[in-house]
């Protein structure tokens, strides 16, 4: 009985999870293209900024979790060692999404640049340390106009 439930979850996780991930990536790429015109930099703290009149802090954050199929893959990878490829897409998606959210809110405010961008990633544990938790990624920077 257990095996049936396990395989069902695995299947659902794989098919639906994959589809959602692809849709998300398409969305991310579209938004990245449309916001490319505003630069973001990781410098800015020590520069002269004569063209800046106003500044404001913007934060974009997202909490992402993996589907069941990927969680089991990661648990197996933990035994074998090496690159955890299933988490790569998760973190990449999360980071780009967080950055886009920050950028979009800065653009809405009217920023011409976003400076001193930094990232924070943290693991949000689920209940029972089976690795099925979530990851919160946030990006923050100063928008100037």
């Amino acid at each position: 009985m257990d095996i049936l439930i396990f395989l069902t979850l695995l299947g659902v996780g794989y098919f639906i999870g994959n589809r959602r991930e692809r849709k998300h990536y398409e969305d991310i790429k579209r938004r990245e293209k449309s916001t490319l015109h505003i630069p973001i930099m990781s410098w800015g703290a020590k520069q002269d900024l004569p063209y800046a009149h106003e500044a404001e802090l913007f934060v974009g954050s997202v909490v992402v979790a993996n589907d069941y199929f990927k969680t089991i893959s990661a648990a197996l990878r933990n035994l074998v060692g090496g690159r955890v490829t299933v988490y790569e897409t998760l973190i990449d998606r999360g980071r780009r999404e967080a950055m886009l959210r920050m950028k979009e809110s800065a653009i809405e405010w009217g920023a011409s640049q976003v400076l001193n961008v930094r990232f924070e990633t943290s693991n949000i544990a689920g209940q029972g340390q089976s690795g099925a938790g979530a990851v919160e990624i946030m990006a923050y920077g100063t928008g100037i106009r």
Partner: peptide, 9 residues
């Protein structure tokens, strides 16, 4: 650039 690694059991 980012990478995620696990060490084996």
């Amino acid at each position: 650039g980012s990478t995620i690694r696990a060490k084996h059991v």
